Computed example of a mutant assay.
Amino acid sequence: MLVESLAAEIEGIALVDHHAHGVLPADPGRAEFEGLLTESDRAVPPWMTQFDSPLGFAVRRWCAPVLGLAPHTSPEEYLAVRRSLGWNEVTRRLLDASGVGCVLLETGLDSGLGVADLARLSGRPVHEVVRLEAVLEEVARSGVSAVELPSRFREALASRSPVGLKSIIAYRYGFDFDPEPPGEAEVVRAAGTWLQEGAPRVSDPVLLRFALWAGVERGLPIQLHTAYGDPDLELHRCDPLLLTRFIKNVEPHGVDLLLLHCYPFHRNAAYLAQVFPHVHFDVGLAINHTGARSEAVIAESLELAPFAKVLYSSDAWGLPELHHLGARLWRTGMSRVLARHVESGDWHLDDAVRVARMIGRDNAGRVYRLRDAPP
């Protein structure tokens, strides 16, 4: 009865997904659908299918019933029914089934439903997280001069009203950057070179550091993509331990840093969350992509860090299936992990329920100061 009671309590949590992306307002063909089941940006080879992956199996197991199909239905039948229902109905069903009560939407990607449209379709609060690099690139495209760029960027950042900021310095450079804030003259020189080259995206480490430290000045929580991602990054340069000096430099500013995803360095992230009061982390993205093994990743994320420093996220992008699966796999994994602690007598049931609520909902409400976080 203890296990059933715990599972019921976890099922009832209206999750706060503290990091997600938009849903594509279209019905993808099979190739595009499979491309969104992997972090690879390469075409799926003709001799395989992404449905034969931990995430592909999870879609057939957990998403098929939401669309009125039997679990483990074939990819062909799943996609056929998906097309017949249409993207709007599929999205509505899967978002509703997720039980997510609030979404923090990172809007740095160019396509997908925005804050207002996702809120309308889901019927739930959706808040914006602003990508620092995207704002800097917008300012650069406005015809600004190198001398004007620093002040104009700060003004653009101040004009936005998000609940948090996000940096993809891991993608554009890596975490082995100079942890000190760059000087103004250094930024202007780097901006001059960048603007003269007409590069569409910012990758200069000086400008990336400038954007990151301007984010610190803004005073909002800052999310940092960490570790696992598409081949645009170099994974060995995305270990969060490389951020240690930067983390120490940020600490006096009182700004929370949120390490996203973290797999396979989630134990390193847990160490940083334990020793630095302003560091938090999640294992979003990895939960979806590890499928049936996500329970192990969730268990490892709870080994070291204080539970007040762990958050839930899906990192869903493109497919509403990923919003649903992130929540479904997290609930299932947390129920199984915490049930073992309760059954062994190591934890009390009340403590297990309290920890699940902290991670699934309460920690995000506190860090981002959400006034409409679900009760």
Rank of each mutant, 00 (worst) to 15 (best):
S5Y: 05
L6R: 01
E9H: 12
E11V: 10
E11R: 15
A14W: 05
H18V: 15
A20I: 15
D27L: 14
D27Q: 15
A31S: 15
L36N: 04
L36A: 06
E39C: 12
V44P: 04
V44S: 08
V44W: 09
P46R: 12
P46K: 13
W47G: 10
Q50Y: 12
P54E: 12
V59H: 00
R61K: 14
R61L: 13
R61Q: 14
W62I: 05
A64N: 03
A64C: 09
P65H: 05
P75T: 06
E76C: 10
E76K: 07
E77P: 05
L85M: 05
G86A: 07
T91A: 13
R92G: 09
R92M: 09
R93P: 03
R93C: 05
D96Q: 11
A97D: 02
S98D: 04
S98Q: 03
V100K: 01
V100F: 04
V100M: 09
E106I: 08
D110M: 12
D117H: 11
R120V: 08
H127M: 13
E128C: 06
R131H: 07
E133S: 09
L136A: 13
G143D: 08
A146T: 03
V147S: 12
A156C: 02
L157N: 00
V163D: 04
L165P: 00
A170L: 13
A170E: 08
G174K: 13
D176G: 06
R189I: 14
A191W: 09
W194D: 14
L195Y: 04
L195P: 01
L195Q: 05
D204Y: 09
P205R: 14
E217C: 04
Q223W: 09
D239F: 04
T244F: 06
K248G: 10
K248M: 09
K248S: 11
N249S: 12
V250Y: 01
E251I: 11
P252N: 11
H253G: 05
D256F: 07
L259F: 04
N268V: 14
A270C: 13
Y271Q: 14
Y271G: 10
A273H: 02
Q274T: 14
P277R: 09
H280Q: 07
F281P: 00
V283S: 01
T290R: 15
T290E: 14
E295W: 08
A296C: 10
V297D: 01
I298E: 00
E303P: 08
P306I: 12
F307H: 10
K309W: 07
Y312Q: 11
Y312G: 11
S313A: 13
S314G: 05
L319G: 00
P320K: 04
P320Q: 07
L322V: 03
H324S: 03
G326R: 01
A327L: 11
L329A: 01
L329F: 02
V337T: 00
H341Y: 15
H341I: 12
E343S: 15
G345T: 06
H348M: 14
L349F: 04
D350T: 13
D350C: 09
V353N: 02
V353H: 02
A356F: 02
R357I: 08
R357T: 07
I359W: 01
R369L: 11
L370N: 01
A373Y: 01
P375D: 12
